[in-house]
Amino acid sequence: MKVSFTLNGEAITADVEPRTSLADLVRGEHRCTSVHLGCEHGVCGACTVLIDGKIARSCITLAVALDGTAVTTLEGFEGDALMDRLREAFRAHHGLQCGYCTPGMLITAHDLIRRKGALSEAALRQGLAGNICRCTGYAGIVAAVAAAMDEHGDTARAAAIAAE
């Protein structure tokens, strides 16, 4: 089946089987290798992308269902100021070990900060709960997101979280 949508700003048309997931299409055919497949049933969050500006699991989204939409993978965030801050904070706060969960963590954190601004640590952890890090490096990830949140907005509260 033919499907057309924009991928990171570029119009694409693909001819796919209906069972093809968005993740398999963009990773396999369009070299968006930031889209990591962990569980392939919507639990781990490693394949998180944006569809029309909203985060979604690309492993449980059928490519054929996306006609006319705009899909953004981590590759599409080049030059995004908040994403640059998040990347720098992940580096500074040891927010990644093996890196497998990192693209999903970054996109989820970006969405969280964009929608909610500053958050308590409990709310921040709740917001990231759908992304699993099998290295269990959550302390560094939470500190990194809190630090990026700090530069984005509520300084005092985020600093307190990052210090923990």
């Binding site: 209906p18 049933h41 919507g42 699991r57 449980i60 989204t61 059928l62 054929v64 269902a65």
Partner: peptide, 25 residues
């Protein structure tokens, strides 16, 4: 299929198979 957030995982895991899916989203 509406959002597919339960159906597609079931299809992926092959807990369910259907010859045809109608997307109403």
């Amino acid at each position: 299929m509406a959002g597919g957030q339960s159906l597609v995982p079931m299809l992926n895991l092959r807990l369910a198979t259907f010859p045809r899916v109608v997307d109403i989203s």
